[in-house]
Design a protein around this nucleic acid. Structure first.
Length: 833
DNA sequence: CAGTGAGCGAGCTTCCGCTTGACTT
């Protein structure tokens, strides 16, 4: 037994630190928080100063038991959780739960995982800072109060199972507010004039800076240009510099991975987690841009080696973002000399991004030269301006360039041909093009995270979960929208003649943007009306300031909570008593067929349109709103159209063919079977019986051809034809068929071979492998007759894997604890339901 | 997986932050 037990938060960290500390130290992980407020009810004792009622979390009981065992025998226990509010609380909970005696307990902190930092920390222990712990308790209690008081109001006033909270409700509000701005926006058109001139033989593009709100003025300029001379009146050269951006934090990594790699926020975190666990990068949940001295030195070495001294410029970055707690370093490669790694393609790409960003942050500025050429038009006061940019020294740009959010139209200015002041240029064409003012952009996941961080709302560990909460609650939908075709005018002056053209462009198309749902809008409106303070964008910042005062010992935590709660709870009571049920009901008009009212509202299962009311004798007609339609904006015509479905097309094989729109889009129903319409080809409103039958037959054919091959040896194993081509399926797990193999000629043995190879090849397949054997184990007792051939199939891959000792050993080690965890999980789930 | 939308009204839902696995494709 070791004399020293060190407890950190993350198991990957524990492994690294153990190496630094040597044999006398046993390093274990708490896996984050070990206790939380009891799940049922508030978990707060209102009678006794908001005393929190804690319980060891179900999934942490094992961890706690293990830590308890080691702490009993250790002489000294080092609480090495992160140096922030939450970390301090974790240390305190450990102290309480493990009943650590003060004389045996040391609190240490370090914010970089280097030998020096850790040894230094051990030299400077302290005790748990109870003020900081109290700040965390206040944070925790406040969040529980807000969440558990507001959510039930929504159940009663809007819809069951809804939720509200300090972070999620404001996140939804941002999206709702933005959508309303977009709805209120009307694009204004104006004209921009641009010309192509000839300097010698080289074409030069130049623009008139001003916008012409009036088409006539733009045309007037074109007319003047027809007979004008164009003279270069000034050539201005300006030096410009660009400096690299700071190393990655969680939020900036999410933004760049979204822009450059197209990753979702949660995808970025999943990939980063793997990189962290494999020791490639430092911790991925951080708000700090700080690099350790060691990291800067390593970056310096790498830059000198690869790019040379000219490119080196080390820097220390400081964090600007609000509420940053800086318990960790920035996200950076663990080893700066490692430019590439061997891993999955996503991991590789994200690692490369992190490496480049980190290296670039320690590189020289880029120096550029901007050239601005002004061209006068004789007989007009407008001027054309051409600008060019030349990189004199690339510096960090050699490695990395941060991307922009909007796909802005600004063309990258390049090199200009040599010109002289006083030089007369020939105009080859001058064009006045109609342009439009741009509406505010919708949020992407990543830009929403940036906004939340800017407002100091949420933490690096919660950005991804917050997005998933607001989408799973149905407040926000991430989707693509098709744009609309818009026409614009263009006047072209060429060879002395002005011609007019009407052109078309697609506008407003959205890719993976966040849209509010009707429920999101109603909930936001309701909360803003009754709880404006909590819904204020600065609410978190205000309470954070108070938490800081608690941490400094200037304010007593439960007094702060009491001040808040007294007022807040009054508002809650008021809302419960005095607010109407919010259904977002809107009357659109009257149905011309029946003369009854047409309304839209939120029903039990979501937004719907309704003809007639429940009080009259006849039952009202209902129809779901479609994807992309909002109660707030739908028109009477659009709503009436919804009632044209389902449409009966006629009979086929003596059974009715019906077309309608379901959860997964437009479909045809015939003989109890569903066939999806082809997207962008078929329209449910106009589709004919003939075409519907064609689709039905097509699907039948596909199903007939689905099974390429089946095997007598194992009925679960099949060669199938899928959307992406032939594949192998066995007990719900799919396997790729190697390209060089002809699927129809596969033998049973070959299939087993393919499965066993893919089982061990990548971590992803590796998990599938467990599934492969597990389902067999479960399926075996159920169907005894069929059980006999299956164990063979399961055994075969293992036998094949045997020559690769590593994979086999790993598979056993990982597979072993699984049944237990699976068992405890199902028990936990049963308890809930 | 492809529709539901009152009615009797039980018992349920819910927060934010700190961590990994567990799941599926």
């Amino acid at each position: 037994m070791s004399d020293n037990l060190v407890i950190v938060e993350s198991p990957a960290k524990a492994k690294t630190i153990e190496k630094f500390l040597g044999k006398d130290y046993l390093v274990k992980s708490s896996f984050g928080h070990i206790r939380d407020l009891v799940k049922k009810g508030f978990g707060i004792d209102f009678e006794h100063g908001y005393q929190p009622q804690y319980v060891v979390s179900e999934d942490k009981e094992k961890v706690v038991a293990e830590l308890l065992k080691y702490s009993k025998t250790a002489k000294t226990i080092w609480l090495a959780s992160d140096e922030d509010r939450e970390g301090e609380a974790i240390a305190w909970h450990l102290q309480e739960v493990l009943e650590l005696k003060p004389e045996k307990t040391r609190r240490i902190v370090f914010h970089e995982i280097t030998k020096e930092a850790i040894l230094n920390a051990v030299q400077h222990p302290r005790s748990v800072d109870i003020n900081l712990v109290n700040a965390q308790q206040a944070r925790r209690v406040l969040d529980r109060l807000v969440g558990f008081e507001l959510s039930p109001i929504l159940w009663r006033k809007i819809k069951a199972s809804l939720s509200a909270g300090r972070v999620q409700s404001v996140a939804v509000r941002l999206i709702v507010d933005r959508e309303r701005e977009i709805l209120a926006f009307s694009a204004e058109s104006f004209f921009k004039v641009a010309g192509t001139f000839l300097a010698g033989k080289t074409p030069v593009k130049a623009d008139v800076a001003q916008k012409f709100g009036d088409e006539k003025l733009a045309l007037a300029l074109l007319k003047k240009c027809a007979s004008a001379t164009f003279t270069v009146t000034s050539i201005e050269k300006k030096p410009a510099k660009r400096t690299p951006t700071a190393p990655f934090t969680t939020s900036t990594l999410q933004q760049e991975a979204s822009r450059k790699l197209g990753f979702s926020v949660s995808q970025t975190m999943r990939v980063a987690q793997r990189l962290y666990e494999d020791g490639y990068i430092t911790y991925m949940r951080t708000d700090s841009v700080n690099l350790s001295e060691q990291a800067i030195a390593a970056a310096k070495d790498a830059i000198l080696k690869i790019y040379g001294e000219k490119y080196l410029h080390t820097r220390r970055y400081t964090t600007k973002s609000k509420g940053a707690q800086e318990a960790h370093e920035a996200i950076r490669p663990s080893y700066m000399d490692r430019q590439n790694i061997e891993a999955g393609s996503q991991e590789k790409r994200l690692y490369e991004l992190i490496w480049k960003r980190t290296i670039a942050s320690q590189m020289s500025e880029a120096s550029l030269e901007r050239t601005i050429v002004t061209i006068d038009v004789s007989g007009a006061h407008e001027k054309f301006v051409a600008s060019g940019e030349v990189v004199l020294f690339d510096g960090f740009l050699k490695v990395y360039m941060e991307s922009q959010d909007d796909d802005s139209e600004s063309e990258s200015a390049g090199l200009l041909p040599p010109m002289k002041e006083g030089q007369v240029l020939q105009a080859s064409s001058i064009v006045a093009t109609e342009r439009f003012t741009q509406r505010p952009p919708r949020y992407t996941e990543a830009t929403l995270v940036r906004k939340l961080e800017e407002l100091g709302i949420g933490r690096p560990s919660t950005y991804a979960p917050t997005i998933s909460t607001v989408t799973t609650r149905g407040y926000v939908i991430k989707e693509d929208r098709e744009g609309q075709v818009r026409t614009y005018k263009q006047h072209t002056l060429e060879s002395g003649k002005i011609t007019e053209k009407i052109l078309k462009e697609n506008t407003g198309a959205e890719k993976a943007k966040l849209f509010p749902s009707d429920v999101g809008m109603v909930v936001t409106d309701y909360l803003v009306e009754y709880f404006p303070k909590v819904m204020d964008f600065s609410f978190t910042a205000k309470v954070e300031a108070e938490f800081d005062e608690i941490a400094e010992g200037k304010v007593v935590w439960n007094e702060m909570i009491d001040d808040f709660y007294q007022l807040f709870h009054k508002k809650v009571e008021d809302a419960l008593q005095n607010s109407q049920r919010a259904t977002a009901e809107r009357k659109l008009g009257v149905d011309p067929k029946t003369g009854k009212d047409v309304i839209v509202r939120i029903g039990r299962f979501g937004p719907l349109a309704q003809i007639g009311d429940t009080e009259s004798d006849e039952k009202p007609q209902y129809a779901n709103l479609q994807k992309g339609q909002l109660i707030e904006t739908i028109t009477l015509e659009e709503a009436l159209k919804l009632f044209d479905l389902p449409r009966t097309l006629g009979d086929y094989e003596d059974k009715t063919v019906v077309v309608s729109i379901g959860r997964f889009g437009p479909y045809v129903r015939h003989d109890g079977k569903f066939t999806s319409l082809k997207r962008n080809v078929d329209d449910p409103m106009t589709i004919t019986l003939e075409r519907a039958v064609e689709l039905i037959e097509e699907k039948r054919k596909q199903e007939r051809e689905k099974v390429i091959k089946a095997f007598a040896e194992n009925e679960e194993l099949q060669v199938l034809n899928g959307r992406y081509g032939p594949y192998l399926a066995c007990s719900g797990v799919n396997y790729k068929i190697p390209k060089e193999v002809e699927p129809s000629s596969l033998t049973y043995e070959q299939c087993v071979e393919i499965m066993s190879q893919q089982d061990g090849s990548t971590p992803r397949r590796f998990r599938a492998a467990k599934k492969f054997t597990d389902t067999k184990a479960k399926a075996a007792p159920k169907t005894k007759a069929k059980a006999a051939p299956k164990p063979k199939a399961a055994a075969a891959p293992k036998a094949k894997a045997a020559p690769k000792p590593k994979a086999a050993a790993a598979s056993k080690a990982k597979a072993a604890p699984k049944p237990k965890t699976a068992a405890t999980k199902t028990v936990a789930k049963k308890k809930k339901s």
